[in-house]
Design a protein around this nucleic acid. Structure first.
Length: 446
RNA sequence: GCGACCGUAGCUCAGUUGGUUAGAGCGCCGGUUUGUGGUACCGGAGGUCGUGGGUUCAAGACCCAUCGGUCGCCCCA
């Protein structure tokens, strides 16, 4: 017989259990996103958390770090290679094709949920993390880029974090521009290969664009002379970018041109952007995205232009800071065990009337009051059994915390409560209440 | 994958140059006090000092490994 281990299994590295104010902040971000997304008429979508591995490897690019070393991939019992989604866009593109969502094009979608990446945990970086995400599929025009960016800007403003965050904007040009620029960059850096950092020498093979935002001083020395995207932009690409920037200006969205800004995933074209902050340590990007006109084709679909962005909920929540739980309206203290059902009637009524209620009915009397006070309610309603001769009397006392006394201001609240008791078999003399003495409920014989 | 720092009661932490039965605050439980009750006081429960080795007469304190945490590199939201 095996002895059962006494140790409690630990949570998986890089996952988090959140609670209280932190969890409220998380919920606040999601709720704000939901509200804003409706303002822009983005429709909700839910996709599975895992997909066939090919969904990601084919769309993100085999050589990207995400695909090559950060995916949670595994074989299921049927032998298929599956992967926990490391991002939203690929799965959305797959769903778009698989479900014939083309019929709804142009389609504005919003979603949020958990993503998984096998990375070293760090501030603002987790193995299971959460994003909010929006996409516009089937619109080749720059207006889509603008609408998405304006929406992101409004979201950050409504969350109250906009002043600490700046929009860094760039264009990668169309496919041809991007390739020409990329080739020029490779050519340029190849000449200085030996002087680059080890990381960048590797990036030269896999993702040369990323050398541009290297923090290594050895690389930075060359950045100033590196080829600029602007010199490789086709006329069309230039015009496209111009429309994006003028749209942002028209909407009053502040932006900063960041010619070295590139995205880590292969599928981006034209517009690329990040909302960055310096308040999150090493994890500066709070919201990022761009246009990915080639992605849906890579998944075997027709050429379909699309734009989108995603933002880290944890990161936004950290910027938002403490979001206190809403104050409790009423704590009900039940002083005698026989009055449980009365407490249930009252609390049910109050909650249905939209008031938050906590019922305290266990522990010593002293503890009950102590607990009620700790809930920090607006008021405490005490249910006592007073003058009980036949066990048919109950007495209600309401204390308004702010006024520290029985309060007439809450007469309405209590009268409402009382009004429902009659059908429940109780009645009271309102004059008792008027005198500020609380209310004595008497049971009436039907 | 690389580096730095850290890991003592439920929580936040003290624990002098290694040396008697490991402490505090908060929280929790019980009690006293306070004239409608978040106060004050008293008492109590709770830790094989992350885990496994090693050094030593002696380790929570030193060394190694391992697992976690935090932060940075990298990557990204």
């Amino acid at each position: 017989m095996e002895t059962p281990p006494k140790t409690t299994p630990q949570a998986i590295r890089g996952t988090q259990d959140i609670f209280g104010a932190e969890a409220e902040a998380f919920a606040h971000v999601v709720e704000t996103f939901e509200r804003v997304r409706k303002l822009y008429r983005f429709r909700r979508a839910e996709m599975p958390v895992f997909e066939k591995t090919a969904v990601f490897s084919r769309s993100l690019g085999e050589t990207t770090d995400v695909v090559s070393k950060e995916m949670y991939s595994f074989e299921d019992r049927g032998g298929d290679s599956l992967t926990l989604r490391p991002e939203f866009t690929a799965g959305i593109a797959r769903a778009y094709l698989t479900n014939g969502w083309q019929q709804h094009a142009p389609l504005k979608l919003a979603t949020h949920g958990p993503l998984f990446r096998y990375e070293r945990p760090q501030k603002g970086r987790y193995r299971q993390f959460h994003q909010i995400d929006t996409e516009i599929i089937g619109v080749p025009e720059p207006q889509a880029d603008v609408e998405l960016l304006v929406m992101a800007d409004q979201l950050l403003k409504e969350l109250g974090v906009a002043d600490g965050v700046t929009l860094m904007l760039n264009t990668l040009g169309d496919g041809a521009s991007r390739e020409a620029w990329r080739a020029a960059l490779v050519h340029f850096f190849q000449a200085h290969r030996a002087e680059l950092s080890e990381d960048s020498q590797e990036r030269l093979e896999k993702n040369p664009l990323r050398i541009l935002d290297s923090k290594d001083p050895r690389d930075k020395a060359f950045l100033g002379d590196a080829p600029k995207i602007d010199d490789y932009l086709s006329g069309e690409a230039q015009e496209f970018f111009g429309k994006v920037t003028s749209g942002l200006d028209a909407a009053g969205v502040k932006w900063t041109r960041a010619p070295a800004l590139v995205r880590g995933l292969d599928y981006y074209r034209h517009t690329a952007f990040e909302f960055v902050t310096d308040r999150l340590g090493a994890q500066g990007t709070v919201l990022g995205g761009g246009r990915y006109d080639g992605l849906i084709e890579a998944l075997g679909g027709p050429h379909t232009p699309a734009v989108g962005w995603a933002a880290g909920i944890e990161r936004l929540a950290m910027l938002v800071g403490e979001v206190p739980e809403e104050q409790l309206d009423i704590a009900i203290v039940v002083e005698a065990d026989g009055l449980d059902t009365l407490a249930t009637s009252i609390s049910t009524y109050l909650r249905q009337a939209g008031r938050s209620v906590h019922v305290v009915a266990i522990g010593s009397m002293r503890k009950r009051y102590e607990k009620a006070a700790k809930f920090d309610p607006r008021g405490i309603l005490v249910i006592t059994d007073q003058d009980v001769e036949a066990g048919h009397f109950a007495r209600l006392t309401y204390k308004d915390i702010a006024k520290d006394k029985m309060s007439d201001a809450n007469a309405d609240a209590i009268m409402q409560i009382v009004s429902v008791f009659y059908p429940l078999g109780y009645f009271c003399d309102p004059r008792m209440f008027q005198a500020g003495e609380g209310i004595t409920l008497k049971s009436h014989p039907k």
